[in-house]
Write a protein that binds this DNA or RNA. Structure first.
Length: 471
RNA sequence: GCUCCCUUCGUCUAGCGGUUAGGACGCUGGCCUCUCACGCCGGUAACAGGGGUUCGAACCCCCUAGGGAGCGCCA
């Protein structure tokens, strides 16, 4: 039997991190076992489903690199099939027409709640002959005795009593099938062997198994994964910041970092923290997924993103960084090779957005100095070293403008003035960068280039002069 | 209300009857150092509570508490 898993989102919003993790687990399980991963769009709710959502989900899957082998299938294109199944159940006496008005159902529910009972349909129309001509829904005739055992790959053995279940609606009065019916038909028709989904579906599982049995179809294995909470332990929502995977992309996270973060949420392999996709496929085991919900921790995602940023191929990061530079109004082609910039800056940023921000000075003069940095380093005492540096740089040829040569020059000036490196390098850094933080002064100067270096030193000297005059 | 699920440092987790309860993020002390960051060394901090079972429980059982989900003509 070939393993087949599926991801079945309903297109009523973007792809959020919880869904992405469920998709990842399904994907990993299929890949590990040489099976197929299917994408199915559950759009039977015509009111709330939108094509924008479908596109957002597909975009998210593509960005994450979760390739599906079949699909996307759309449930709205399979209504005929659901009708066929419902008619079959009706003919075989496994389902029946119910003409109970909504008011009766509501009254029933209220009465049951008042009696501290679980609200359930009472089977009022079970034995009745309701004409197909009058308004009605179709209900599945659920067994009223015995138990249903769900042998869940994550939860273990969960037992439900049929007495807790009622005759659920499988076809609405408008003729559309309901979720519990369509999901079962699709999983069976599509040969899904392992259903990996959110644990909010655990309570629906016994109903689905009963329908499957009535249809004489094979019951798949189930794995119900716990949900993801916000940093505060509350259910994840917009107020926690980004929940859409596309928002993470836009904020400058790498897909492999997000996948790595998500796979570790609820799962682990010893003390290992960093997993390539291949390692995930090799090592992931659905049975080892934690049963408890886990909180999304952006600090740890940031750390992972930084890890990937600094170890990834600089050329690739440069390609991903380029649009973020553009967003700052910078055309990377007008300055140093972006890949070199990435090479010297990558360990200093948590996201591509941050990487772009701290790298802007390589491409354009900054607007104003960081207050604290200027106050501390751009003082009259720095005048002499900056003047000497400028004079020395002025004499350097294009060929000599290398990190090694630049380092010699700065060291020589420090030596001549009888001060340590810091006394010379820090004022220079603030003059060139505008802030007190940057890569090594040699690489910084090298990438900024001679023209901008001299221009910014002159600017810094004017600043110091103005400041001295003001005092 | 009823049914089902869950509970180890602040967070993610290891543990699968005998451990000084381990690692990671965060926070923090130090080292490295031209700054920042990286890296390295160290510190902080947890078995929800109560009963059993057992020579011995974070691990097994029961109860309580606290979270969560479901109980739709949503998915």
């Amino acid at each position: 039997m070939t393993v087949r898993t599926r991801f079945a989102p309903s297109p009523t919003g973007y792809l959020h991190v919880g869904g992405a993790r469920t998709a990842l687990f399904s994907y990993l399980f299929a890949r590990k076992h040489g099976g197929q991963f299917v994408l199915r769009i559950e759009d039977t709710d015509l009111e709330r489903s939108t094509t924008e959502s479908v596109n957002a989900i597909l975009e998210g899957m593509t960005w994450l690199g979760l390739e599906y082998d079949e699909g996307p299938f759309y449930q709205t294109q399979r209504f005929e099939r659901y009708d066929q199944i419902i008619d079959e159940l009706l003919e075989r006496g496994l389902a029946y027409r119910c003409a109970c008005p909504k008011e009766r159902i509501e009254q029933l529910r209220e009465k049951q709640m008042a009696e501290r009972l679980k609200p359930r349909y009472d089977g009022h129309c079970r034995g009745k002959e309701v004409s197909a001509d009058e308004p009605h829904v179709i209900r599945f005739k659920n067994p009223d005795t015995g138990v249903v055992v769900v042998d869940d790959m994550i939860r273990g053995r969960v037992v439900f009593s049929n007495e807790e279940l009622d005759d659920l609606v499988i076809r609405r009065s408008d003729g559309a099938p309901t979720y519990n019916l369509s999901v079962v038909v699709d999983d069976a028709d599509m040969g899904i062997t392992h259903v990996i989904r959110g644990d909010d579906h655990l309570n629906n599982t016994p109903r689905q198994i009963n329908i499957l049995r009535a249809l004489g179809r094979e019951v798949p294995r189930y794995a119900h994964v716990p949900m993801i909470l916000g940093d505060d332990g509350a259910r994840l929502s917009k107020r926690h910041g980004a929940v859409s995977v596309i928002a993470y992309r836009d904020q400058g996270y790498l897909p492999e970092a997000l996948l790595n973060y998500l796979v570790r949420l609820g799962w682990s392999h010893g003390d290992q923290e960093i997993f390539s996709l291949d390692e995930m496929i090799e090592l992931f085991s659905i049975g080892d997924v934690n049963r408890a919900a886990s909180a999304f921790n952006t600090d740890k995602l940031d750390w992972l993103n930084q890890q990937y940023l600094q170890h990834a191929d600089p050329a690739r990061i440069a390609r991903l960084l380029s649009p973020h530079m553009g967003r700052l109004g910078i055309d990377p082609a007008t300055g140093p090779d972006l890949a070199e910039v990435v090479r010297v800056q990558a360990a200093r940023a948590k996201t591509l957005v941050e990487l772009a921000e701290i790298s802007a000075f390589f491409y354009r003069d900054f607007e104003g100095y960081d207050e604290g940095a200027a106050k501390k380093h751009l003082r009259p005492v720095a005048r002499e070293s900056l003047e000497q540096l400028a004079a020395a740089f002025e004499l350097m040829s294009f060929e000599d403008w290398t990190p090694a040569e630049l380092k010699h020059v700065v060291e020589r000036v420090a030596e001549e003035l009888g001060v340590n490196m810091g006394k010379v390098a820090q004022p220079l850094r603030v003059a060139i960068v505008g802030r007190a933080a940057s890569p090594g002064i040699d690489e910084t100067l090298w990438l900024v280039g001679k023209d901008a270096t001299l221009r910014r030193i002159a600017q810094a000297l004017r600043y110091i002069g103005a400041r001295a005059a003001a005092d």
